[in-house]
Computed example of a mutant assay.
Amino acid sequence: MARTDAESLAGFLTGLSPETRRFSTFDGHDLAAARELCSAIARYDKLRLVLEEEASGGIVGLLEFSLSLPQNDVARYRKAGIHLDEGTDCRFGPTLADEHQGKGLATQVFPLICEVARRLGKRRIILWGGVLADNPRAIRYYEKNGFRTVGSFTGPDGQRSLDMILDIIPR
């Protein structure tokens, strides 16, 4: 990891609006958080893909996969009649820079997301931390890309979220 990688990622994180930060899964939105994300490469069960704008070289998105499934996710999905398995299922959480939201970028990269999951041997994707029920744009995006709602839950912060799952069509 180069020092400039963390600085570039910190620029992306600090540039997120309070609303986008509320919807993201990151523990922080500063240089320290960026350094932690960069230092965690190859250390955990996560895969992070960075979207860079060609013209500026700046980061405009961060797509995260987790190959482990926390027990609270497994239990919630089991209540909905869905058995999750780390061998076939993964968690996914995207974050886009505010100025790139609503312009089709996430839809454009969604086939890549599915391809990455397939290459990792996964057949289903669940949302990392669910999606906040008061985030209609994200819910619409997930539904448009084939996710279906399987239940709802109240997070530790007291906010209602939806669990959604996508069956990946094999190639």
Rank of each mutant, 00 (worst) to 15 (best):
M1L: 10
T4S: 15
T4R: 12
D5T: 13
D5L: 10
A6M: 08
S8V: 03
G11D: 05
F12Y: 04
F12G: 03
T14K: 13
G15V: 01
L16Q: 02
L16V: 02
S17C: 00
T20G: 01
R22I: 07
F23R: 14
D27T: 08
H29I: 09
D30Q: 09
L31Q: 02
A33M: 09
A33F: 11
A34S: 05
R35S: 09
R35P: 06
E36D: 14
E36Q: 15
A40D: 13
I41N: 08
I41F: 15
R43A: 14
R43Q: 15
D45M: 08
L47C: 06
R48Y: 05
R48Q: 08
R48A: 10
L49Q: 07
L49N: 08
L51P: 11
L51T: 05
E53D: 15
E53L: 11
E54Q: 15
E54W: 12
G57L: 09
G58A: 15
I59E: 04
I59V: 15
V60C: 14
G61T: 07
L62G: 08
L63R: 02
E64Q: 12
S66L: 11
L69S: 02
D73V: 07
V74C: 10
V74N: 02
R76V: 06
R78P: 05
A80C: 13
G81I: 09
G81F: 12
H83E: 15
D85Q: 12
D85G: 06
G87Y: 05
D89R: 04
C90H: 01
C90W: 01
R91I: 03
F92E: 00
T95Q: 08
L96D: 06
A97M: 03
H100I: 05
G102S: 05
G102D: 04
G102C: 04
A106N: 05
A106M: 13
A106F: 08
Q108R: 15
V109G: 03
F110D: 05
C114N: 06
A117Y: 00
R118A: 13
R118E: 13
L120V: 00
L120T: 00
R123K: 13
R123N: 11
R124M: 01
I125Y: 00
I126W: 02
I126A: 07
I126V: 12
G129Q: 06
G129M: 07
N135I: 03
A138T: 05
I139D: 07
I139Y: 07
R140C: 07
R140E: 12
Y142P: 01
R148F: 12
T149S: 15
V150T: 14
V150S: 09
G155P: 02
G155L: 10
P156E: 15
P156N: 15
G158K: 03
Q159D: 11
Q159R: 15
Q159H: 13
R160E: 13
D163K: 08
M164W: 02
L166K: 03
D167G: 10
I168Q: 01
I169Y: 09
P170K: 03
R171A: 12
R171I: 08
